[in-house]
Design a protein around this nucleic acid. Structure first.
Lengths: 122, 122
DNA sequence: CAAATATCTGAGCGTATGTTCATATATTCA
DNA sequence: TGAATATATGAACATACGCTCAGATATTTG
């Protein structure tokens, strides 16, 4: 059954009781807004093209046209993806003449990338 | 410019040369198939509902109807999402009578979840 | 067995997303 | 200044995805 919600009054049962005594607690239901933010973060990492870009930038900074050549994709597509990576604060950039050199934002990002890559390599 | 591809023959230049001497190396262009797999992994983590489910399971195992009640969503929606989490090997489950109790697959998953959550809490 | 409970599943709908294409902006160079 | 280079951007299109709804299993209970 289960129409949509019943809300029988007892909101706390079974899985919730250990929140009262603070022991294994502090692992609480993620708030909607926080879940949203966290989801957006992972969403940036959920695209193969963006991950490949990050794998290139993990080595050294690189300009857009080189990235495009390496991935054999149009510079437009790459530019769009770098925009997402920028918005997600996963990369930084520096302008030099007409070129723009991108790099991973910080070591935090590199570590996350490598951790997951190794995790999946099993 | 940039039509689509030029492939001037030199596939390795600039960012790639430090792969020869193994030092900062081992950071190579992610292959398409590997990028795909890695992307799918992050994609599972990119949905707010799935993250909230994981936040509940981080505390203790829980059955579907309780999860649905806690998130105030239909059991159908939750079941669909648990299916994704199962496919991504992020959760395991155990059947007991007509109930199915889900839990995080391993500590690896919990650590990743907590690491990112803290990272975004800054 | 029939009714109730717990979960799963497929189709369908609305929305989000990645790429292409055309174009805009900015910088270098002749 | 005008042509060429490097990057960014918006519209459009095709695909992917989350939720709902209806219904299918499966298990317990009367």
């Amino acid at each position: 059954m289960a129409k949509k919600k019943a809300e029988s009054g007892t909101t706390d049962d079974l899985c919730t009781e250990h929140h009262h005594h603070g022991k294994t607690a502090k692992i609480l239901l993620l708030a909607e807004t926080e879940a949203q933010r966290m989801g957006e973060f992972f969403a940036v990492l959920s695209d193969p093209t963006r991950l490949r870009l990050m794998s290139l930038l993990a080595g050294d900074e690189c300009c857009v046209c080189d990235l495009a050549e390496r991935l054999d994709m149009t510079e437009s597509a790459i530019s769009h993806q770098l925009r997402s990576l920028r918005a997600g604060r996963l990369v930084s950039y520096r302008k030099e003449g007409r070129q723009v050199f991108y790099r991973l934002h910080d070591h935090h990002v590199l570590e996350l990338y490598q951790t997951v890559r190794e995790h999946l390599a099993e």
